[in-house]
């Protein structure tokens, strides 16, 4: 079994400093968006997907587990948040919590089931589980089937921040994204993250060293699923709807694509990938199904010639981990 990323460099204090500098640059650039004339809705959408892709990357890039059903966490959290906001009329912060809790519960169950098989089977199981959920949501009354939950009130966060104002909403989403990103960064560089990487590199050896690898993988799955749920809950405020597209397998495929383009197992890769793919969809929206064809082509090109992804290639060139 060859490793997913062929060059894992030790995280030295210097590398960590570089990463923190890059993080600050990213945060400042993103914070400047409302003053730049860039359409904030586009950036907010991209940020939600970036967080989703980062959560997905935690599992594939550091745990070596390719989930082909990550849309189920996003969609579930989206539906539950939307329901809590619209029907129960909860304030935004509680609505987000409801979504996160739902994704947490779902990842406990699906993680328990899917972690039982490895490699390719794991991918097929997560895909099948997300399809199971898709059909449940298609029939469940509270999701309103094909229509989805629409016209979700955005409300006031903590009673102060008026989320109906685009700029306020933008900064709330940005803070949410940065918090999620830092949490993932912390997880990756924790002792837990190191064990996870060792499992990715050589699971039998990790077992022989006394680690209960199943527990580590399960915890990584739950963390990843819950964070994906956070992204889904944030997206409800941006899109103001929750629909079946968010639980469909094609959405799971898009998340995989974003991470692959940016670079599997890189810290900033999923963010770059999410912006690239969302921008592409935006610009090519008029071309109908050719978008699917282009996405498929990117998959093929990435796998055949560009397996490290954008950030992975840059990091490889500079011999850094990014």
């Amino acid at each position: 079994m060859t490793a997913l990323t062929d060059d894992t460099l030790p995280v030295t204090p210097r590398a960590m400093r570089d990463e923190m500098i890059l993080f600050v640059v990213m945060a400042v650039l993103l914070a400047a968006v409302p003053f730049s004339g860039i359409y904030p809705f586009f950036v907010m959408q991209a940020l939600c997907f970036a967080l989703l892709a980062c959560a997905f990357n935690l599992l594939i890039g550091y745990g070596g587990l390719l989930s082909f059903g990550h849309a189920m966490f996003m969609g579930t959290a989206g539906y539950c948040s939307a329901h809590a906001l619209k029907v129960w009329a909860l304030p935004p912060e509680l609505g987000i919590l409801v979504g996160i809790a739902a994704a947490f519960g779902l990842s406990l169950v699906t993680g328990y089931i899917s972690i039982r098989r490895q490699g390719i089977y794991f991918s097929m199981i997560t895909l099948a589980l997300s399809q199971l959920l898709y059909f449940i949501y298609l029939q469940a009354p509270f999701t309103h089937g094909e229509d989805g939950i629409q016209g979700i009130p955005q409300g006031r966060m903590f009673g102060i921040f008026d989320l109906t104002k685009p700029t306020v909403l933008y900064y709330v989403v940005l803070v949410g994204f940065l918090a999620g990103f830092l949490l993932i960064y912390r997880i990756i560089n924790s002792p837990f993250g190191e064990v996870l990487k060792s499992i990715r590199e050589n699971e039998p050896r990790a077992i022989s060293l006394g680690y209960r690898t199943d527990q580590y993988k399960f915890l990584a799955f739950v963390l990843s699923g819950t964070l994906a749920g956070f992204a889904g809950a944030l997206k409800v405020f941006v899109a103001q709807n929750a629909s079946l597209t968010d639980v469909h397998w094609s959405m799971s495929g898009e998340v995989v694509l974003m991470t692959l383009v940016g670079g599997l197992g890189t810290i900033f890769g999923p963010v770059v990938g999410a912006f690239v793919i969302i921008a592409m969809q935006q610009y090519l929206a008029g071309f109908g199904q050719w978008v699917t064809v282009i996405q498929g082509s990117i998959f093929v090109i990435c796998v055949l010639t560009f397996r490290r992804g954008v950030i992975g290639e840059i990091a490889h060139y500079f011999r850094r981990s990014l």
Binding site: M1, T2, A3, L4, I60, L66, F68, G119, I120, S123, G253, V256, L260, G288, Q289, W290, V291, T292, V293, Q295, G296, S297, I298, F299, V300, C302, V303, L304, R307
Partner: peptide, 26 residues
């Protein structure tokens, strides 16, 4: 893809599926 992780085969054939289905859908 010989010698690479199984996952790349899944990703590559997923891409092929998207291309083929997209072309026919068009």
């Amino acid at each position: 893809l010989t010698g690479l992780d199984h996952l790349y085969g899944l990703l590559l054939t997923f891409g092929i599926a998207l291309i083929v289905q997209g072309v026919f859908q068009n």
